[in-house]
Design a protein around this nucleic acid. Structure first.
Lengths: 326, 326
DNA sequence: TTGTAAGCGTTATCAC
DNA sequence: GTGATAACGCTTACAA
């Protein structure tokens, strides 16, 4: 393993000078600078992160905490990691137990004692995001949250706008009775739908679905019921791809043809959306951009940049992926 | 941050003694041992990994290299990480570009220069697993591969047995004409099918599928064609959940009822399998166990255990998840 | 059985 | 502008 000493010998200068050149801290004559850099390159020098961490008492790792291995999450993590690859920081992962026991608190304990330079996290299943953020702030650890609805520094997704645009698109393709299918509790998408309908000067059609059994069964039942309504909508914006696919199955069971009888738009753009029959038109999450933005924000926080006037959080736009259900 | 020195002061012994007790290297009087451990606990001591790494020239990180964020991969990574949580090792992740450019070679370069204690990897898209393994061996870095078909130290999945059991299950439920739908190139599952049919004393029925357009369209077409065959099978074991779902859509389009007219079994047990209509019976990958076994093997290799007589690799059994397509 | 002290590769203080 | 050199927290050879 080549170290500063080797480079110093090679370049005929002192270790201190090499360090000064390589970290860019302090002055160095242009000639010296070039000599050192050449030597470092020649020897294939990579700084020893452990020595550096020991000396500076700073960690060069950022930790990602996740409570799910869902593709939508992991795509963001991957983009986050790739963005950080160029910097000095390595990405370490911690996975919470999605089920019960391993609470968010325990994972945060483990995480904080590792003293990472920064932390990126997803919303834990117990929704204690605000708690987590507070604890991190207390520990002085910069953090960023992926796509949270809570009041924390986060990279968010403009679901409202995404649905708004999808509904306008449905209208533009000539759909008359555009309905929304999804829970009332989470209003992010619903508001986009309502705004679009408002703008179109149409009455919102909110589809209810039963909550009797397991999700997919309810959705299929809902599909069949909707298909049989005398005032059946001719287009549906669904809460998610999962909801859309279950609903779609119900429509098929009732003998409806998609998109002829009814157009359908999902949300998320999961892999499975392209496996649907027909492949599902859907609002895609900007996974790549979320990952990049999160890395960017974390790096700035770590570098002690001051909070921007409009805060740290960012909201990123979705993208409509038109397939064959519209 | 409390260090060895603080504990030494607290316990009234030297730093050396504290270290000896805490690492378990060398003798210490029982009383001293207890005194030190109590002090460490009292002060909430956590070893500085950087100092330790610097001194021992060993890393306490293991790196995971992945080229996909597929849920099937990430579930294994999560189990791997959770298993390693108890040990001294942290898990860092590196994501390759799934598309083109960022070749496996580059990622391995980056990975090796980080000098992790061990590496766990998935098969890269360019199938250079053997190359990767060789390079790691050259660098003296212990490694484990998740679920590879190549001749490397890997935790594998007994796909053959999984399909074998699924086919026997189909036969046990009274199915007469059990077919196999999948590529001929990958024989892992096919062999299980053939073995089962052999044992049942039946002629294998190998379903072909077109490769004209994109995957899902072909599958639907295949479903319709199979539905219309005069000698239509009454059960199909599919290569994967994805294949099964596309095929299922084709069957529906042709007016067939599943499982009444035809039973269908997938492979993988993805999230989407439970969203199918009806929810798909499938052969589940043992993700949790694969992750654990990989962690176990890597830890042993890192600890310099000698290669077991039967080699490092392990093969893990699948589990049949019966839902509503059988 | 325990203590003293050297040294891992960096960065940072200080003198030149 | 640059060079000795101390220090970070830990492990370990050697001495006691």
């Amino acid at each position: 393993m080549t170290g500063l000493k080797d480079i110093a010998a090679e370049a005929g200068v002192s270790v201190r000078t090499v360090s000064r050149v390589l970290t860019g801290s302090g002055y160095a004559k242009q000639a010296t600078r070039e000599k050192v850099q050449a030597a470092a390159r020649r020897l294939g020098y990579r700084a020893n992160r452990h020595a550096r961490s020991l000396r500076t008492a700073r960690s060069y790792e950022v930790a990602v905490a996740a409570w799910s291995t869902d593709e939508l999450y992991m795509a963001k993590v991957a983009a986050f990691e790739r963005t950080l690859r160029g910097s000095d920081y390595a990405v370490t992962m911690l996975f919470g137990q999605s089920a019960g026991s391993g609470s968010a608190g325990e994972l945060m304990d483990e995480l904080i004692t590792r003293r990472p330079a920064g932390v990126a996290l997803f919303t834990p299943p117990d929704r204690s995001t605000v708690d987590c953020a507070r604890r991190l702030a207390q520990a002085g650890t910069p953090y960023v949250v992926f796509d949270s609805s809570d009041d924390v520094d986060a990279i968010r997704i403009d679901r409202q706008q995404g649905v708004y645009e999808a509904v306008l698109y449905l209208a533009a393709t000539g759909r008359q009775r555009i309905a929304y299918l999804g829970t009332r509790k989470d209003t992010s998408r619903l508001q986009g739908y309502q705004r679009a309908m408002d703008q179109l000067g149409r009455e919102p059609i909110l589809l209810d679905y039963a909550h009797n059994h397991d999700g997919i069964r309810d959705l299929r039942l809902t599909g069949r019921r909707v298909a049989e309504r005398f005032d059946r909508p001719d287009a549906v914006q669904a809460y998610s791809d999962e909801v859309a696919m279950g609903f779609l199955a119900g429509l098929h069971e009732a003998g409806l043809t998609v998109p002829d009888d009814l157009a359908l738009v999902g949300f998320d753009d999961r892999l499975a959306a392209s496996w649907a029959a027909p492949p599902l038109t859907t609002v895609a999450q900007p996974n790549e951009q979320v990952g990049q933005a999160a890395a960017d924000m974390l790096l700035r926080k770590i570098a002690n940049e001051r909070r921007p006037p409009d805060g740290w959080s960012r909201v990123l736009p979705t993208r409509l992926v038109v397939r064959e259900t519209t």
